[in-house]
Amino acid sequence: MPERLDPRFDLSFSLNGAPVGMATTTATTLADLLRERRDGRGTRLACERAVCGACTVLVDDVPRASCSVFAFEVGGRNVRTVEGLSDGGDLSPVQAAFADNSAFQCGYCTAGMILLTEALLAREPDPDDATIRDWIGSNICRCTGYSLILEAVRDAARRKRETAS
């Protein structure tokens, strides 16, 4: 085995509401840490430069590009990934809105877009179109032309408000 250049340490944080503890290295990114778990591959890597947003996860409810967050940065914090959204197999309102509006094609950006939407709607339950464009404008979707995604976000906001009321 090659010599490890990066020291190992024990990391614990909350992943989708459950405490996790594992040995990792100082050079490991959050994305790599998540993807090493068999149930963590919904977090997808594309540009690996914090530009495209495909790997977006929520760290203490803030969207972060997990390709550019070191694993050690999330020690003691709450991390939410796409795997944590479905409640016992039922899609979340945001996931359901993306599914029903065909707001995806190849699906590679989808987890990131959905988590971005979760974060947006947690802050602004009824965002106007400019706000939605501004938020969705931070991630790249190369397939859809965005309109169907914007419609899914509006639809998700409606569904969440209806569920809440």
Binding site: R44, L91, Q95, A111
Partner: peptide
């Protein structure tokens, strides 16, 4: 109707 890949793609379970 929902695309047949919708469930897998919005839940992160789709395999690439």
């Amino acid at each position: 109707d929902r695309r047949i890949d919708a469930g897998e793609k919005v839940s992160g379970r789709a395999v690439y």
